[in-house]
Design a protein around this nucleic acid. Structure first.
Lengths: 236, 236
DNA sequence: CCAGGCTTTACCAAACCTTTACAGAAAGCT
DNA sequence: AGCTTTCTGTAAAGGTTTGGTAAAGCCTGG
């Protein structure tokens, strides 16, 4: 249940208010604490203050270049840094990496991809090997969900799920006994906020429900919580 | 005195003539044979020629980045490599270490420290050769992949692969049951992060898939995991 | 200059996501 | 209970995304 980097505090330095707001929400939904710095002025102080666990740094900043920022941060701190770079901009990238950025992320990016890389640098920072092994298996009773392999089985028999269905199932299981709201599910699974009249999650939930029903004969259920969302339930 | 690595032949790739001369003297004094390459041009050929036991590689080179050099060497050889990186410039373990560097050494360094690490990687290499720790052969059922020799066979019959295809196959096999994401594959195989619309991995994956299919008649498959990446699968 | 091999592009088919519509269930109200 | 409103299940149509594939472009080493 405890995903990597849960609770890690991330400093996001980006001048694009809209984009960074969306990204912040996404990150928070993934369990990070996020602070945004729009102008980069205080970024160096903030980044080196020791309160953050990682920095996401846009290289395209209005007043000061991200590269310069990166250099200054690196003078005082070894905090993990991910740069956001323009697509195909090799120069910034190489310079960035050589200045000690831990990774880069070409724009435009998919938030889940960024989160994956963020977790990677955090994991690497903490005991490299130690926590490296995730709890790859979740699920209850005879239902096994192997996240790294993206495989689902009931009593050993594989269940064929689409990408979204798989993600949805994982989200539901991670939510455990708590009800997962449509908004949470939409953000986690579809990568967008939920708005009224959006029935997409419902459709996926039902398709998933159907497949699980067929495969497990009622061993796993997806319970509807009227007006709120869904919850996965199984005979323990 | 002459402990580990006595007589080992080291290739030093560094453009700073003064520094590398001093280092060479120090290393020779410690019992190593040393060859220096200043411009890095011939470094790949030299490193992969089989005459050296280890490479010390400066990442800050004038014409070509050390990272690029590293990648090319790793395409053809498993020789131990230590990177020299600028201070604080954890020149990317993401890229450096993931591309297969064995260790890194921040500049400025104390020669004794470098020698210690050099011996460590040499010892590790030899130890692995002695112990059963290594898996020079990976693959399943009738597919044999010999990494040091860079040879692939199906039921003894060789399969002709390009460098990239071979690396891709190894990356897939090493990932085992886990799905290898495009980003992971891109980093490991191509030495760069993945960005959307980059289809290179897909093309290689399909070429490889085709060759394996022809050779093994379905004994090995490269499975596509939609929206995520690929996985190698074989009849066990 | 050629050859081999990596990358990019373009196109197509298949997979699959989203939307829509409607019917049925649940909850509220009187 | 009945009636009304709100919400969810479900099927199907439509549209979008994704990956396979062929081919052209490009780079590099010979």
């Amino acid at each position: 249940m405890k995903t990597d980097g849960a609770g890690a505090h991330v400093l996001l330095v980006d001048d694009d208010v809209d984009l960074s707001t969306m990204l912040r929400q996404y990150l928070e939904n993934e369990g990070f604490r996020v602070t945004v710095d729009f102008n980069g002025k205080q970024a160096v102080d903030a980044a080196t203050s020791g309160v953050y666990d990682a920095v996401i740094l846009d290289v395209m900043l209005p007043t000061i270049t991200g590269i310069e920022l990166l250099r200054r941060i690196r003078q005082d701190s070894a905090i993990p840094i991910i740069m956001l770079t323009a697509k195909g901009d090799q120069v910034d990238r190489v310079i960035g990496l050589e200045l000690g950025a831990d990774d880069y992320m070409p724009k435009p990016y998919y938030p889940p991809e960024l989160v994956a890389r963020l977790r990677a640098v955090l994991r690497r920072r903490n005991g490299e090997r130690a926590g490296a092994e995730e709890d790859p298996e979740l699920g209850f009773s005879d239902l096994k969900v192997n996240t790294p392999a993206r495989r689902v089985t009931w009593q050993g028999a594989p269940i064929q799920l689409t990408t979204t269905e798989f993600n949805l199932l994982v989200a539901l299981l991670q939510s455990g006994d708590r009800v997962a709201t449509r908004d949470q599910l939409s953000r986690n699974v579809l990568g967008r906020a939920w708005e009224s009249y959006d029935r997409s999650i419902d459709v996926h939930a039902n398709n998933l429900r159907q497949k699980l029903l067929n495969a497990s004969e009622g061993g796993v259920e997806i319970e509807t919580v009227r007006g709120v969302g869904y919850r996965a339930k199984g005979r323990q």
